[in-house]
Design a binder for these strands. Structure first.
Lengths: 150, 150
DNA sequence: TAAAAACTACCCACTTTTACCCACTTATTG
DNA sequence: CAATAAGTGGGTAAAAGTGGGTAGTTTTTA
């Protein structure tokens, strides 16, 4: 499977395009077909899934019973902001205006490899996100792995 | 199979026509034959099924026990408002007046890709729908996947 | 049942957005 | 330190979205 890591600060051009870092492109599977699905992140950022990873997310929906109101709500939330994006000749994708607005992205972006997805942040918003964390990395790390630190 | 995603705000013209977004048209299968079946949604909106997907819905009805009054009621509701619609030369379909009235659609529509169907909403009604949700996306998501959050 | 009204299918036309190309500068790399 | 790749910027033809005319059909109504 695809696995992204690292972080990069790139520019957004006047047409809303960003380059996908070469080091991340190298981790794309052939079956992703140079295609991505771009959607709204849980925090104020944009999630960029390679197509093969996105299809795993979408596969879950097919199993849902669309006569259940909660299942319809979930389907709508997941799909409402999702947009296809293909790499152009210069290895860039276009960020939808709506998502740029949501993530408060203007001229620069902080691009973060996050395992199965690529995240695109306004660099300042990412700083705020880090500052807003209640607990530090080591504390959270130990909780995540159900161990007590110290 | 067809799989629609994304959302768009388009206009309804004086003849009751709406454009089917190009990004959704790309996901139509050849067997849908540029044809749709338009019917009443569960919420105040219009469901637009590509023809091939509609046939699956009809197949499900075929399995219902028509001696059961509730099954008969469900069958009637689904079929009563169903209308065929074909793309015209400009990739538009006509929304039946009855359904436009049901969904309170006037000048603008919010078009939402919802996996196997396209939904057409009055933009304000969609906002109301979202505001009316008891639980947020993350909570519902975790319930849908039968996990407890936090 | 004939005239009027409404609806539909098929055009054409216009504006805005997008896809695709070319070009330049800055980093990497053998 | 040349040669290639990576990152950035922009022009332009094609596609997408919107609006409306008209002729033929169906529906309504006097």
């Amino acid at each position: 499977m695809s696995s992204f890591k690292g972080s990069f600060t790139y520019t957004v051009d006047s047409k809303g395009r960003i380059n996908i870092p070469a080091k991340m492109r190298k981790n794309l599977l052939p079956e992703a077909n140079n295609s991505f699905v771009v959607t709204r992140g849980f925090e104020p950022c944009i999630f960029v899934y390679p197509y093969d990873e996105w299809m795993k997310r979408e596969g879950e929906i097919g199993k849902l019973q669309q006569t259940d109101p909660q299942h319809r709500f979930f389907t709508r939330m997941l799909l409402q902001f999702a947009t296809d994006a293909e790499l152009d000749g210069q290895s860039r994708i276009i960020l939808p205006k709506e998502l740029m607005h949501y993530a408060k992205i203007e001229n620069d972006v902080f691009i973060l490899g996050a395992f199965d997805r690529i995240e695109v942040w306004n660099p300042d918003e990412y700083k705020k996100y880090l500052d807003g964390q209640q607990e530090d990395y080591l504390t959270v790390a130990s909780k995540v792995f159900e161990k007590k630190v110290d």
